[in-house]
Amino acid sequence: MLKVIVVDDEPLARKGMQVRLKEFTELDVIAECSNGEQAIEAISRLQPDLVFLDVEMPGMDGFTVLKQLQQLNSPLPYVVFVTAYDHYAFNAFEVSALDYVLKPVEPERLKQAVEKAIKVARADDSRLHKGQLAEAVARLTGDDADNILQRLDNAEPVVNERYPEAISIKDSGEITRVPVSAIEWVDAAGDYMCIHTRDGQTHILRRTMKELEQELDPRLFVRVHRSAIVNVHTIAKLQMLANGEHQLMLTNGQAVKVSRSYKDRVKQVFSQ
């Protein structure tokens, strides 16, 4: 059975969630919390497998709860966010939560979330998921979780207009935050990304080029090849080679090949 904690500042919401969760024999609700402080204490002490976490709570919201747990190095459970926000706005949270359900909670939607939690738990993927959850929360909220919530309250876009100021890279049990502004260029090496920074370091990140490209501000970074992304501020010149192909020369002396399919994107940089 999965040990479950329900966190919501509304008593009726907590009661309703507990009643519905009793229908699942695979779940055991071991505690309920009415605010963020209680949630942090209960999660740290009881170490549940799954938490149904309300996003908007007075005093300490759901994002802050996760950030505090991360700072305490407390084991992170699977998280299903519970929120009254519209579905389109909640796309911002999908990368950092196992799932989400909207208020008022519909039985079928709750069933889907529970089944997903059970499936992931049975796959014994907790270590990977919890690491992804910690990194995603850091990337999404940055240093100010309230700012994200305010943008959602105002129905402002989150995913397409807000880009992280740093990228979290996990290596040998450590997580390093690399400032995006320090990245000069990125190239693919098999299943890994090599992130080259202006201090001469190379950081290895396990993520696809497409995923990384979506996290970087297109005003600052340009895809020049299926296996390369370049910071526009590091571009010194565009060269045409004897064979008709193009390459970029960066300010650090690095040459980066430009593929034909991305040539027009690169030329746009020089027209700005």
Rank of each mutant, 00 (worst) to 15 (best):
D8W: 08
L69W: 00
L110I: 11
T25Q: 12
V224C: 14
S74A: 13
G36H: 01
I235R: 02
S126K: 13
L72S: 03
Y88S: 10
S168G: 12
L238N: 08
I204Q: 09
K15N: 10
Q47G: 09
R207S: 14
T197M: 12
N91Y: 11
H203D: 09
E184H: 15
E156W: 12
Q254M: 12
A242H: 04
D146T: 14
V79D: 01
K3G: 06
R122V: 07
I5V: 14
D144Y: 10
R122M: 10
Y88D: 15
L140E: 05
A97M: 10
E156L: 14
I229N: 07
E41T: 04
Q247L: 13
I5A: 00
Y262L: 10
A228H: 03
I148R: 03
A92R: 13
H87D: 15
K67V: 03
N252M: 09
M240G: 06
N160F: 03
E245N: 14
R127T: 15
M240R: 15
P218I: 08
V269E: 09
K170H: 10
P179R: 01
E115A: 07
L98H: 00
F81N: 04
I148G: 06
A84V: 12
D61M: 05
F81E: 01
V120K: 01
N243A: 04
A228I: 12
A39L: 11
A39S: 05
K267P: 02
G59K: 07
R109F: 14
D49W: 06
Q268F: 02
D153I: 07
N91K: 12
I43V: 13
T176D: 13
Y192G: 01
M57W: 05
K263N: 15
Q68E: 15
V186C: 10
T251W: 05
R127S: 14
A242K: 14
R127Y: 06
K267C: 15
G59T: 09
S181K: 11
V79M: 03
K22E: 11
V7M: 04
L212R: 02
V230D: 01
Q47K: 09
Q68N: 06
K130N: 13
L238H: 02
K67N: 08
V51K: 00
I235M: 10
H203C: 08
Q201P: 02
L133Y: 02
L72Q: 15
V29C: 05
A92P: 07
A242G: 01
V7D: 02
